[in-house]
Design a binder for these strands. Structure first.
Length: 617
RNA sequence: CGGGAUGUAGCGCAGCUUGGUAGCGCACUUCGUUCGGGACGAAGGGGCCGCAGGUUCGAAUCCUGUCAUCCCGACCA
């Protein structure tokens, strides 16, 4: 068997690949039609990625260099916290997921786990995340508090059958993720680790050269208590962030709590029934009768489907100017009913087609006291509504609401009258820009968009209890491990960096994650003087530890400049007509600053700047 | 899955309304000129017009079905 010998640093083999002529560089002059946002367009155009199927991408050599640099930073920072790198299986047995209670939720309905049956008819899932595997390993390996705390992490591909893959690497069905899991003897130690991770994450994003904001977040399907997301701020971000001007509060809209704008009192004497023909929306009502949306009580009907098959109709009341926050509603339903009915699988609008007699449902004219009778005869739905209400609805003193009969509303209604029973007030609304901050009503929330690149959770004992991962504590008693989990979307982070750092001409990579730090461009590859000088500088730079690429193609100078800008290499050294006089030009991609001079002088100052830039923001 | 759109050469597109045997720009190959901001000229190569079925003497074009991709919503690193 021939054995390949690795000599030197192991990076030697890069030498030959650092020439553009040997880099398999295929750039496109036109934007690919399939790409919508700048980062996706640029990564395709500049030859970093190619789509293989929807949400599935090949990382071409340049992209792989970027991903390895991002990974290296992540690895360094994780190692610095004392975390241990591992590699866990991607193919995972269904039983493990059945034990944690997530198999059904992740495979049925809108579940996102790719799953399959092997030739022995065993069910397997392709890992969308690794809590189950890691917890079962922890159960086998961790016996005593003396082994704690311990944190394990890995960097590898994850698989999620996304309902709608989008925007290139932003929402792929296969993507690279760093996931870490920590195990503790108690909640205090978990909280301590959470803080350490939060700091490590801030360093990671800073070192990658991206602006990221830590926000309070919903824990979603992962479960657990405290959770924070790290958002790269960008217009194309999928999430809405609400933050206070003084920076003391920032949260994902899914999670954000705030003080709603006060309602304007409805000034009417007594209550009456109003004819509202065809006025089925809040806008219609307001324009026809001069009401304000905040004076109207809005009712939303949904169906919550649970693991054990229950299809529970839900009636939610909100103030008319507010939007239902489905994440908050799901959390309420999950926490109060999952023990009884199994996990919440889906939450969807109630469709008339599910009713035995749709004509009895006065859609658009419904009040909070809609009779359960409208559900009668349905073969799928439970016969009674679960009635919930947001604070904004319960706190209305006098309001307008549907009369539960077509083309009629009631005006001047109060809770407690006409058989209207106010449900317990809950937070079910979306916080909005301009809402007051809970702990400081004088501050108003500002909205911005973000790309979620990291998420850290204090899981608590959810998985350790489910999978029976126990340790012996100081008192000699057995108890479930306390767990945290911490994710970074490595491939998403790389694209988010592009989203944050690009211009008309192309990508502008932050130095720490650029595929190369500098490109030496030979303006005229037919001029031996230029070639000789460029080759010499290229070797010198490489020897001096600069991550350098040589554009030795026999293209015209303009083409090479355009490509260098499209690729986003932070620095460009042009060896051109000044070469005969020993002069070269140094150009910084981000600022466009150009300096001409003797190589020794320019490269000395370059080295200084690079040293700074390698540290990130 | 619901709503919207698109599939014609590697990429971007025209052709389809009014059926007649496929075209433009970029990219690619060869030669010459040019050579610091995506050069010019000449000559080339490359397309089961997404797939299947139907209508027709004849289908990229009309009809039906299907698949794929993208955008808007639920999912999330």
């Amino acid at each position: 068997m021939p054995i390949r010998t690795v000599i030197g640093s192991g990076l030697d083999w890069f030498q030959d690949l650092m020439r553009v002529s040997a880099l398999l560089l295929v750039t496109l002059r036109d934007d690919p039609a399939e790409a919508e946002i700048p980062s996706h367009r640029l990564l395709l155009r500049a030859g970093y990625i190619r789509r293989v199927a929807s949400g599935i991408y090949a990382y071409l050599p340049l992209m792989w260099r970027v991903l390895r640099k991002v990974s290296a930073i992540v690895r360094e920072e994780m190692d610095a916290t004392g975390a241990l790198e591992t590699l866990l299986p991607q193919l995972q047995p269904a039983e493990l997921w059945e034990k944690s209670g997530r198999w059904a939720g992740y495979t049925e309905g809108e579940g996102i786990m790719f799953h399959l049956i092997d030739r022995q008819e065993r069910e397997l899932g392709l890992g969308p995340t690794h809590e189950e595997v890691i917890t079962s390993l922890a159960a086998e390996l961790l016996r005593s508090y003396r082994q704690l705390p311990v944190t394990l992490y890995q960097i590898q591909s994850k698989f999620r059958d996304e309902i709608r893959p989008r925007f290139g690497l932003m929402r792929g069905r296969e993507f690279i993720m760093k996931d870490a899991y920590s195990f503790h003897a108690g909640p205090e130690d978990l909280a301590r680790e959470f803080g350490i991770m939060e700091e490590a994450y801030s360093r990671i994003f800073r070192r990658c050269g991206v602006q990221a904001l830590a926000v309070e977040a919903d824990s979603g399907a992962i479960g657990g208590s405290a959770s924070k997301e790290f958002m790269v701020t960008a217009a194309a971000g999928e999430d809405l962030i609400l933050s206070s001007p003084d920076g003391s509060y920032a949260a994902n809209q899914e999670r954000a709590q705030a003080l709603p704008q006060p309602a304007q009192p409805l000034e009417v004497e007594g209550s009456s029934v109003l004819k509202t023909p065809g006025q089925a929306t809040i806008d219609d009502l307001c324009s026809a009768h001069g009401f304000q949306p905040c004076q109207i009580l809005k009712v939303i009907l949904l169906v919550a489907r649970f693991e054990q098959g229950r299809a529970q109709p839900v009636l939610v009341s909100l103030r008319g100017d507010q939007q239902l926050n489905e994440v908050k509603l799901s959390n309420v339903l999950q926490s109060s009913h999952a023990p009884e009915w199994g996990a919440l699988l889906s939450l969807q609008p109630l469709l008339a087609t599910e009713l035995a007699d749709a004509s009895r449902m006065p859609l658009g004219f419904i009040g909070p006291d809609l009779e359960d009778g409208v559900l009668a005869g349905s073969s799928t739905l439970e016969p009674e509504f679960l009635r919930l209400a947001d604070h904004t609805a319960v706190e209305l003193e006098t309001f307008v609401c549907g009369a539960n009969s077509n083309d009629q509303h009631r005006v001047g209604v109060r809770w407690g009258q006409q058989g209207l029973v106010a449900p317990e007030p809950l937070d079910l609304r979306c916080a909005l820009e301009g809402d007051g901050l809970t702990h400081d009503p004088s501050q108003k929330l500002c909205a911005s968009r973000g790309i979620e690149v990291g998420h850290i959770f204090q899981l608590g004992r959810k998985y350790s209890q489910a999978l029976d991962a126990r340790f012996t504590n100081e008192n000699g008693r057995d108890e479930p491990l306390w767990m945290g989990c911490y994710g970074i979307g490595v491939s998403r982070l790389a694209q988010a960096a592009v989203e944050q750092h690009h211009d008309e001409a192309g990508i502008v990579w932050p130095v720490p994650i650029a595929p190369f730090e500098l490109v030496v461009v030979i303006a005229n590859a037919k001029d031996p003087v230029q070639v000789d000088l460029a080759e010499r500088l290229y070797r010198e730079l490489s020897a001096a530890g600069v991550d350098v690429l040589l554009d030795d193609r026999s293209e015209r100078a303009g083409v090479k400049f355009k490509d260098a800008e499209l690729l986003g290499i932070p620095w460009r050294l042009v060896v051109g007509r000044g070469a005969a006089d020993g002069l070269v030009e140094l150009v910084e991609r981000a600022s466009g600053d150009k300096r001409e001079g003797a190589p020794a002088v320019l490269l000395a100052s370059l080295q200084e700047q690079l040293q700074q830039q390698r540290l990130g923001l």
